[in-house]
C-alpha cells in the first residue's frame, strides 16, 4: 500500500472516529446496583451535588450536578439505603457530594475515565459530620462497546460515575447512624 492510500485510510478512520457530537451523560446510565446486601437506615436523606459541568457539543461528555444527583437519588432509592429521600433542608441527614475532577482521555480505542468525588454525610439537627470520604473511581469502555469515540467516552464517564456511586453506597451501608 502506498503512502497516499495509507493517508486516505487514516483520514477516513479519523473522520469516523470523531463522527458525532458529545452528548451529556444520562442519569439512568449512572444508576448503581449494589454488589451486596445494603443496610437500611431509618432516617431520611437529602442530596446536594456541586462541582459538575454542562456538556458542550464540541467538547467531551461531562456530568452536570443535576444528572449526578438524579442518578444518586435513583441508586439510593433502589438500594433502600435510606428510608426516604427528601429536600436537604428537611431531611434527617444531608449528603453533600463535590465532584472534584473528571479525567477523560483525548483519544483512544479503550477509553478510561477517572472521577474523584468528596462525600460528606451530616446530621442536620446538630450539623455533626457522620461520614466523610474522598472516593476515586475508574472505568474503561472497551473499543468494541461502541463505534464512535464520543459514545465510548460518554459510556466510560457514566461507568466511572456509576462505580463511584456504588462505592459510596457500600461505604454508607456499613455506617451505624444515630
Amino acid at each position: 500500500m502506498n503512502i497516499r492510500n495509507t493517508a486516505i485510510l487514516l483520514l477516513a478512520g479519523l473522520s469516523l472516529w470523531f463522527a458525532g457530537c458529545a452528548s451529556p451523560t444520562q442519569p439512568s446510565a449512572m444508576v448503581a446496583t449494589p454488589t451486596g446486601p445494603v443496610t437500611r437506615h431509618a432516617q431520611s436523606l437529602g442530596i446536594a451535588v456541586a462541582g459538575g459541568a454542562a456538556t458542550s457539543a464540541a467538547g467531551a461528555s461531562k456530568i452536570s450536578n443535576e444528572d449526578f444527583a438524579e442518578a444518586l437519588r435513583q441508586s439510593i432509592a433502589q438500594s433502600g439505603l435510606f428510608a426516604t429521600l427528601t429536600a436537604p433542608e428537611q431531611a434527617d441527614y444531608r449528603l453533600d457530594v463535590q465532584i472534584v475532577r473528571l479525567v477523560q482521555p483525548l483519544i483512544g480505542f479503550s477509553m478510561t475515565v477517572t472521577i474523584e468525588t468528596d462525600w460528606t454525610l451530616t446530621r442536620r439537627s446538630d450539623r455533626q459530620v457522620a461520614w466523610q470520604k474522598a472516593i476515586t473511581s475508574v472505568y474503561t469502555a472497551r473499543a468494541g462497546e461502541a463505534f464512535a469515540g464520543v459514545t465510548r467516552l460518554r459510556m466510560a464517564t457514566e461507568g466511572a460515575a456509576r462505580t463511584n456511586i456504588q462505592d459510596a453506597i457500600s461505604r454508607m451501608s456499613a455506617l451505624v447512624l444515630p
Binding site: 463535590q98 472534584v100 475532577r101 479525567v103 483525548l106 474523584e116 468528596d118 466523610q132 474522598a134
Partner: peptide, 28 residues
C-alpha cells in the same frame, strides 16, 4: 496536579488540573 501534554510540532502542555487538599482527609 495532573498535566496533559500533546504534540503539535513540539510537545506542549494542553491542560493542567490542580487541587489543594486537606492533608488528613484528602478532601479538595
Amino acid at each position: 496536579y495532573q498535566d496533559k501534554w500533546v504534540w503539535d510540532i513540539t510537545m506542549y502542555m494542553l491542560q493542567l488540573d490542580l487541587q489543594i487538599r486537606a492533608p488528613k482527609t484528602d478532601f479538595a
